[in-house]
C-alpha cells in the first residue's frame, strides 16, 4: 500500500497536483507583481520628474544582480534535469548553488539599499522611491522565501526523496527571475 499523499498523485487536468498548485501560486504572484508593476508604469508615465530620481539607481549593480539571478536560474533548471534522471545528490548540489545565487543577489541588493539610504533616498523621498523600495523589497522577500524552500528541498533531494519538489521550486525560482527581468529595465534603464 502506497503512503504517498493523494494530492501528489491525483491529476484531473493531466498535470500532477503539486505542479498544478505551483502554477496557481505563480498565477497569483502575476496578479501581485503585475498589479504593482502596472501601477508603477502608469504613475511613471504621469510623473516625468521621476526620471531625475531614477538617475540615482546604479545600473551596473542592477545588471550584476540580473546576471546572478539568470545564473541561479540555470542551476535551478540543471537541478531539475538531474532530478529527472533520479540523481538526487546532483540535484541537491545544484539547488544549493541556486540558493547561493539568491544569497549573492540579496547581499548586492543590501549594498545598493545602504548606498541609497546614505545618499538620503528613503521610502518617503517621493513617489519613485516608494515604488522602488516596495517593488525591490517584495521581490527580495520572494528571493529569501525561495532560498529557504530550496534548502529544504535540497535536504530531501540529497537523500533521493521527494524529487518531484525539485521541479516545483524551480518553477517558482524562474518566476522570481522573470519578475526581476522586468524590474531591471523599469527601475534602472528606462529613465
Amino acid at each position: 500500500m502506497s503512503t504517498r499523499p493523494i494530492s501528489n498523485t491525483r491529476s484531473v487536468t493531466g498535470i500532477p497536483s503539486a505542479r498544478l498548485i505551483t502554477w496557481w501560486v505563480i498565477a497569483s504572484e502575476i496578479v501581485i507583481f503585475g498589479g504593482l508593476l502596472a501601477t508603477y508604469v502608469m504613475h511613471n508615465l504621469g510623473h516625468p520628474e521621476w526620471r531625475a530620481a531614477a538617475m540615482h539607481t546604479n545600473t551596473w549593480l542592477g545588471a550584476l544582480n540580473t546576471f546572478v539571478l539568470l545564473t541561479s536560474s540555470l542551476s535551478a533548471v540543471l537541478a531539475f534535469k538531474a532530478a529527472d534522471t533520479l540523481d538526487g545528490a546532483k540535484a541537491a548540489k545544484f539547488l544549493r548553488l541556486t540558493a547561493l545565487g539568491g544569497t549573492i543577489f540579496l547581499v548586492i541588493k543590501g549594498i545598493e539599499w545602504t548606498r541609497e539610504i546614505h545618499e538620503g533616498f528613503v521610502l518617503s523621498s517621493g513617489g519613485f522611491w516608494s515604488f522602488y523600495y516596495v517593488l525591490t523589497g517584495l521581490h527580495g522577500l520572494h528571493v529569501l522565501a525561495g532560498m529557504i524552500i530550496l534548502l529544504v528541498v535540497a535536504a530531501d533531494a540529497a537523500k533521493n526523496r521527494e524529487l518531484q519538489r525539485v521541479e516545483c521550486i524551480g518553477l517558482y525560482w524562474h518566476f522570481v527571475d522573470i519578475v526581476w527581468i522586468f524590474l531591471f529595465p523599469l527601475l534602472y534603464i528606462a529613465r
Binding site: R4, P16, V77, D84, N160, L163, Q164, E167
Partner: peptide, 22 residues
C-alpha cells in the same frame, strides 16, 4: 510520505535543451 526516489512527474521525461546555451 515516500522514502525512496520517485520521478517528479508521472509523464514521459521531457526533452532537455542545452540549458547552458540558453
Amino acid at each position: 510520505m515516500i522514502s525512496e526516489a520517485q520521478p517528479m512527474i508521472s509523464e514521459a521525461h521531457i526533452h532537455h535543451p542545452n540549458y547552458v546555451k540558453i
